[in-house]
Nucleic acid binder design. Sequence first.
RNA 1: GCGCCCGUAGUUCAAUGGAUAGAACACCAGCCUUCUAAGCUGGUUAUCUAGGUUCGAUUCCUAGCGGGCGUACCA
Length: 561
Amino acid sequence: MSILEQAKQHIFEKVVALVGNDSLINDIIVDYPPEAAWGDLSIACFVLAKLNKQSPVELAKQLAGQISADEVIGQVQAVGPYLNFFLKPEYLNQAVAESLDGRAGYSQEPIDERIMIEYSNINTHKEYHIGHLRNICYGDAVAKILAANGYRVDKVSYVNDFGIHAAKTLWQFKKNQRAVGEGYILGHLYTAASQALETDADGKQAVAEIMKQIEARSGEDYKLWQETRRWSIDYFDSIYQRLKIKFDQIYYENEVIDDGRELVSKLLKQGVLQESQGAVIADLEQYGLGVLVLLRSDGTALYPVADLALAAKKFTKTKLSRSIYVVDNRQSLYFQQLFKVLELAGFQTKLVHLPYDFVRLPEGMMSSRSGRVITFEEVYEEAKSKARLEITKRHSDWSESKIDQAAEIITIGVLKFEMIKVGADKIITFDLNEALRFDGFTAVYLQYVVARINSLLKKGHAKLSGQLPLELLTESKERELMLALAKFASVVKEAGRRYEPSILAKYLFDTSRLFNDYYQSTTIIQADAAKQTARLALAAAVARVLTNGLEILGIETLAEM
RNA sequence: GCGCCCGUAGUUCAAUGGAUAGAACACCAGCCUUCUAAGCUGGUUAUCUAGGUUCGAUUCCUAGCGGGCGUACCA
């Protein structure tokens, strides 16, 4: 437990002992006052007072009188119906030491549960756009947060390489072969194909022929499929490398689809699935979930077939306590249906669909088929050239490779942060100019704080080990910073409990703002030796929390910028 | 039709039943002969409507309005 969690527990126990009524325990909630000056922790006395048939103001006053200062609590104040606690300075000082630890924010108590999280489900033969970027950034941040909370996390991805979209792209490719070997180009071909096929009946015929060969796994088109599939996968790998995101396992539709068909016929025999109008369906009307179609009336497979096989594969291979699917909220009904079928099929793993809202453009929805998309490549290039420019302005003496490395870290940080800084239930209206900002609520703001602190540490002379004179940190801004540091561990927990990286992003930003404010109003290197040591320790603790917090969000920091 | 999600400042977002609804961007005015100005300080502006539950509602419930999405052979 972090020192703040211990303090909360301590206060809770004291109040429980005084109130002495077990039925009230759930109503004793140790919270934070809205204003730093009012205290570090607080309890609202409304419910307690009501059940005790007292006025809340009276009860707060009475409790304040009964609780005395100790090794944790410095002062207690009743402010109206609120009971406010100030932590003892020596106690709060421990937050600095706690945060200086290299593992700050990472749980020291492993949880004996294994969670599989599936995200970045993409299609080969199509482009990679900023919608995919939101998915992978959000999914990866959640995975890292859960890991930081002590869970064992398996990160998996599922690639749809076997659908009709591949045939369409190939059809276009055969018409005008160009850019051989480049996965990036396939996305453009898909768009061109979709548009052309709207009016081209012969084309549709040809696409169907290509699809047949792919499914039959033989012929010229199958070979071409194999080759182009590889281009796509290599291209996606290059994106993953830039994002520094790794999966434990990547599944491909073409590898599970046959198992899926087998599973479907088994479930059909068992009566979990039914035949209807020539198709194979799951009739889920009795659960209020409508009907899920698995096989078309022509016998070809739909999406859920592979998903069933994939689930079966996941659950039999490893013993999971939870299986999470990070997929946008348009598929909420689909996942309810899928989960119900899996349950009826006898699988018992706890299934979670983790929905998030989609990315749209100011002018409307993105659409691969119409080509109205912003690709990852476009945003990446624009952001990176802007980063290069900004760095060059500030560091004329840096080498080209040093500039490039820094620009890369800034670019990826900005893009990731942009994708996770808002709640998952919010539509992101992607404005390129907005996304290319390097000030305000952005990754750069946080990275900048770390770089500045790093520079302080280089210039200062303090040794930050052994006994630190933290008792010299008495200014109100120093107290506020220490309290902010102390909250780190519980913020990571909260973000995990709610699957919400934006909570952590916001916390890191708030903490950075506090530090910038402090930095502006205080001298650190110029202070006398003891003060310098104490303040550098505080600054180093802030940098550690920001670095680890960003790392948990998948974002790197820089020593200099 | 039915179901799900969202309506907060000019814009993009925060506040998951608590104290004076917070930030960022944009706009205006300041701050670099002192630790990185990618920074800091100050200023203007908001809970879609109507009911209800509650000591207390941006938050929960009901109805309406507005936007988005889904709803048997797309993924």
